[in-house]
Simulated assay, not measured.
Amino acid sequence: MNSVLAIKDEILLLVNQAMIDFENITEAAWNDKPQPHKWSKKELLGHLIDSASNNIRRLIVSQYEQEVKIIYHQDEWVAYQNYQSVNIAEVKSLWKLLNYQISRVIENIPEEKLQNTCDTGKGKTELHSLSFYIEDYLVHLKYHLNQITA
């Protein structure tokens, strides 16, 4: 039995609950920037889209290519995609679907591939296993969902 299936299930539960919770957030609240250099709730959700995209790539590529370097510059990703100007319904839909996809990817990783590694270091080598990235994704997801819905 794949040891990360419980995490996959928890991701799906979080996403489904968040989609309900998101209905209580007004358009103004989605767009409000606490400070000019801080992300709005909409940009935080965009950041979670980017995180899902990058982690999907890590989880797939690292199954067939060991120690591949996949670096993610989060501020650039949010800025260049200009989530602040996108309709929130589109941002929510994309986030939900990418999390359904990452859950499918997690579910299909063979147990023996979970210790394969990926390098995310921006100037130095920073190798972690696929298991680590899956666990870390869940922690990261919870952290930012709490920021958005609190």
Results as ranks from 00 to 15, higher is better:
M1L: 07
N2A: 11
N2C: 06
N2T: 01
S3W: 10
V4T: 14
V4H: 07
L5D: 11
D9I: 00
E10H: 06
I11P: 00
I11V: 14
L12E: 14
L13A: 14
V15A: 09
N16K: 14
N16I: 04
Q17G: 06
Q17K: 14
I20L: 06
D21G: 05
D21H: 09
D21P: 02
D21L: 12
E23F: 01
E23G: 04
N24T: 13
E27T: 15
A28C: 12
W30H: 04
W30I: 02
W30P: 00
K33R: 13
P34M: 09
Q35V: 13
P36A: 08
H37G: 01
H37S: 11
K38C: 11
S40C: 03
S40G: 08
S40P: 07
K42W: 07
E43I: 05
L44I: 10
L45V: 14
L45P: 02
L48S: 07
I49A: 02
I49C: 07
A52C: 07
N55Y: 00
R58D: 04
L59F: 09
I60A: 02
I60T: 07
V61E: 03
V61P: 00
V61W: 09
S62P: 06
Q63E: 03
Y64E: 13
E65Q: 15
E65I: 04
Q66M: 12
E67Q: 10
E67N: 11
E67W: 10
K69G: 09
I70D: 00
Y72H: 08
Y72S: 01
H73R: 15
Q74T: 11
Q74A: 12
D75S: 14
E76V: 08
W77P: 00
V78A: 08
V78W: 03
V78F: 00
Y80K: 14
Q81A: 05
N82H: 06
Q84P: 03
Q84A: 15
V86Q: 06
N87T: 02
L94H: 00
W95S: 03
W95G: 05
K96Y: 11
L98S: 08
N99I: 00
N99Q: 06
N99L: 12
Y100V: 15
Q101P: 01
I102D: 05
I102S: 09
S103C: 14
R104V: 03
I109E: 00
P110M: 04
E111P: 04
E112H: 10
K113W: 08
K113M: 02
K113V: 03
K113R: 06
L114N: 06
L114H: 00
Q115R: 12
N116E: 05
N116Y: 12
N116I: 04
N116Q: 14
T117P: 05
C118L: 10
C118E: 01
G121Y: 04
G121L: 06
G121M: 07
K122V: 13
K124C: 04
H128T: 09
S129N: 01
S129C: 04
S131T: 14
F132Y: 15
F132A: 02
I134L: 05
I134K: 05
V139C: 02
H140F: 02
H140P: 06
H140Y: 00
H140N: 04
H140E: 03
L141C: 05
K142P: 02
K142N: 10
H144V: 12
N146G: 12
N146M: 09
N146Y: 07
I148F: 02
